[in-house]
Amino acid sequence: MAPRRLHLPLLRLPLLPLLLLASASLIVGCGGHTTERDTVEVAGYGEIKTTPDRFRVRAVSSRSGDDIPGMKQEVDSEIRAALSLAEALGLPERQVRATGITIQPEWQWQPERKLIGHRVARDIELAVDGIEAYADLLEGLTQLGFTELHQASAELADPQAHEREVLQKAVANARDKAETLAQAAGRELGEAVIIREQSGHQGPQPMLAMARESADTSSAYSAGEITLTRQVQVRFELK
């Protein structure tokens, strides 16, 4: 009689644990750990001071009384004159904005509440480039009869150019700080691996200083100064 063969069941192992086991063996064979880069992270601050070159003015034409149609006609006439002035000064249409007319009642409160008339008004907002053009605009509006003039803002006509400059200063400031720290620790500074701009660090709104020397056309205006600031967070590699 031929000897009987024993048939043992084939042991099947899942593929994923085998792959994980092989990977673990490979890591152990290579030293068993990986290394991370040494870094230093610092905040950089940039600041520039510059002179505003675009100025916005809001002029209000208004009349008070009982003749609403007549007052409306006078107000519209003044606004049309302001639009003609803007055209004469060469202002682009995008830098001129005239609002619609408003009519509001005016009351007398003492000794009793009493309607005494109406106020009819229109606003026009104009933006000019350059302090000389700003002075010419104010003089022209005054000669047209506008008595209510407001400075809307003093700003930069091309803010992006200054934005690049102040950001470059902020990054340079961060690198200078990081180099100081690296040298103090006996290390060399490598490349920047992460750069983040910090939000909420806008410069203060510019203020326009005006000095009226006399009642004639010789007037002096000072544009003042704008301070722009930015802050960045930069991580550098250490060698």
Rank of each mutant, 00 (worst) to 15 (best):
R122Q: 15
R119T: 10
L126R: 04
D216T: 12
K49R: 11
H118C: 06
S25T: 15
R113F: 07
M1W: 05
P9W: 06
Q168N: 13
T35Y: 10
A127K: 10
P14L: 08
P105W: 11
E106I: 15
I68W: 01
D76N: 10
Q104V: 15
A157R: 14
A220Y: 08
L138D: 05
R58Q: 08
Q231V: 14
V28Q: 11
I226T: 02
P69W: 11
A152I: 00
I226H: 00
A24R: 04
A98N: 00
G29D: 08
Q183F: 00
K72C: 08
M207R: 00
T50R: 00
G46Y: 04
W109V: 12
Y221R: 05
G200A: 02
F55Q: 05
T217H: 06
S153A: 09
L138F: 02
L83N: 03
I116S: 13
L167G: 04
A43R: 15
E179Y: 07
L85K: 03
G70M: 02
E36R: 14
A154P: 01
Q168P: 02
P69M: 14
S214L: 05
Q151A: 08
D129K: 13
A154H: 00
Q73L: 10
W107R: 10
Q183D: 09
E163N: 03
E139Y: 06
K72R: 11
E179F: 04
V232A: 08
A127W: 08
L13E: 04
R80T: 09
Q110I: 14
E237N: 11
A223Y: 00
E139T: 08
V96W: 03
G44L: 12
L138C: 06
K177S: 12
A220K: 07
R119C: 08
R235Y: 07
G29F: 13
G31M: 08
G32T: 02
L26G: 06
P92G: 09
G140F: 04
A82Q: 01
Q205F: 00
V42N: 13
V171G: 08
G145V: 10
T227E: 05
E36Y: 11
L156Y: 00
Q233I: 15
R196W: 11
D158L: 02
A154F: 01
L13Q: 10
L85V: 09
E74F: 03
R119Q: 15
P204G: 00
A161T: 07
Q233K: 15
Y45R: 14
P206K: 02
A88W: 02
G190F: 05
Q205A: 02
L15V: 10
E87F: 01
G130K: 08
S222F: 01
A184P: 05
S222N: 08
E93Y: 06
L138R: 13
R80S: 12
P92N: 09
T35G: 04
D176S: 12
P17Q: 09
D136P: 06
L10R: 13
R37V: 14
E125N: 01
A59W: 03
P3I: 15
Q104P: 07
S64H: 09
I131W: 01
T102K: 13
T39E: 12
L85F: 03
L156C: 02
I116R: 13
A152E: 07
A2C: 10
E36S: 10
P204A: 00
R56K: 05
G145F: 13
P3G: 13
V232H: 06
